Amino acid sequence: MKIIHITDTHLMPAGETLYTLDPAARLKRVLDDVKLRHADADLLVLTGDLTQDGNPAAYRLLETLLTDMPFPVRLLLGNHDDRANFHAAFPAHPVDSHGFVQSMMAVPEAQDRLLFLDSNSACEVGGRFCGQRAAWLRDTLSTCPDSPLMVFIHHPPVAHGMAHFNNIGLHDTETLMEILRAHVGGVRHIFFGHIHIPLTGTTHDGIGFTAGRGCTHQFRQDFNNPAPDWVAGVPNYGVITLTAAQISYHVVDTLDAETLVPANVCAGP
């Protein structure tokens, strides 16, 4: 299974800029490249902060940008999003019984499951995974106790190493991780956004995790600085390949890189 991962698009209403950048132009550049090079993908996942301030016009713009994607799309909410305005723009998007934007998807021809979790907390930069969400997750996982999981969420449920986010991460980390660790089928990987920089690692009990780089503005990787610079960076996305043998994550961040010379074909031994 091939999954395209984009995060932190921070869309503004059409024509508006953010830190001198046009988030919609950034996202369109990325989506055009995805359609050109990865039309065979099975799924596109955007892990939150879809908009900068939850503006209804920004969600309508997102809907327009995604209209001609050749495969299904799953959207998650981040701290910059507004749940009510999101529902108004995407009324058919999967939600749980309490209206949280979370769901589970079976991987075709495999036992694996994809989990899409909602960590949005109204009027709060940090994330929450409240009792209702936790109950939904326990009930959902009880239907597939032996299935390996891949988890998508906005806020990182692991240590991220960026001082800027020390007080605005996922405030219910242990609530979520306790449920995931107890899952008999295991967790193959967790994918998230929020921190705007790439990060990969493994927890002490062997759960792998990866953060995507922000699609629009990004942080200078000044880890110990609580107020690092926002930087333009480059348009980018991730390509996740899921097989029975492994999970791989390719970062595509050379869309506008200068071409030097073509490489030679390597025939091998």
Rank of each mutant, 00 (worst) to 15 (best):
T143D: 03
C130G: 14
A134G: 06
S121L: 12
C123F: 05
R138T: 10
H154R: 05
E124S: 11
R128M: 13
A134C: 10
S121P: 00
E178L: 11
S121W: 03
T143M: 09
V151F: 01
M162G: 01
A159W: 10
D172Y: 13
M177N: 06
D146G: 05
H160V: 15
T143V: 05
M150V: 14
H154F: 08
N166I: 14
L170H: 07
P157Q: 06
R138C: 12
W136M: 08
I179D: 05
R128T: 04
L149K: 02
I153M: 09
E124C: 13
T140C: 12
P145Q: 02
R133V: 07
A163T: 04
G169L: 04
P145F: 10
A134E: 07
A163H: 03
P145T: 04
V158A: 04
M162W: 10
L141C: 04
L149I: 11
L176A: 03
R133N: 12
G127S: 03
E174R: 10
I168C: 12
G126C: 14
E178V: 11
S147P: 00
W136S: 00
H154C: 04
P156S: 06
T173Y: 01
H155V: 05
N167P: 03
N167F: 14
I168P: 03
T140W: 01
Q132G: 07
S147I: 07
P145H: 03
D172W: 13
N167E: 11
L141W: 04
G127T: 08
P156C: 09
L149H: 02
F165H: 07
W136Y: 10
R133C: 09
L149W: 07
L170S: 02
A135C: 07
E174K: 13
H155D: 01
R133P: 03
A159Q: 13
I179V: 11
V158Y: 01
S147Q: 05
V158Q: 05
C130W: 03
D139Q: 14
R133A: 12
N166S: 13
L170A: 08
V125T: 12
H171A: 05
V158G: 04
T173W: 03
H160Q: 15
Q132C: 11
H164R: 15
M150K: 08
I168G: 01
M150D: 00
V125G: 06
D139S: 10
H164S: 13
C123E: 00
E178G: 13
F152G: 05
G127I: 05
H154L: 12
L149V: 10
G169R: 06
T143H: 11
P157I: 06
W136Q: 08
L149P: 01
E124F: 12
A163F: 07
H154N: 08
Q132P: 02
F129G: 01
D146H: 12
C123T: 01
R128D: 07
F129T: 04
F129I: 00
R133W: 10
T140M: 09
V125L: 14
D139A: 11
H171V: 08
V151T: 01
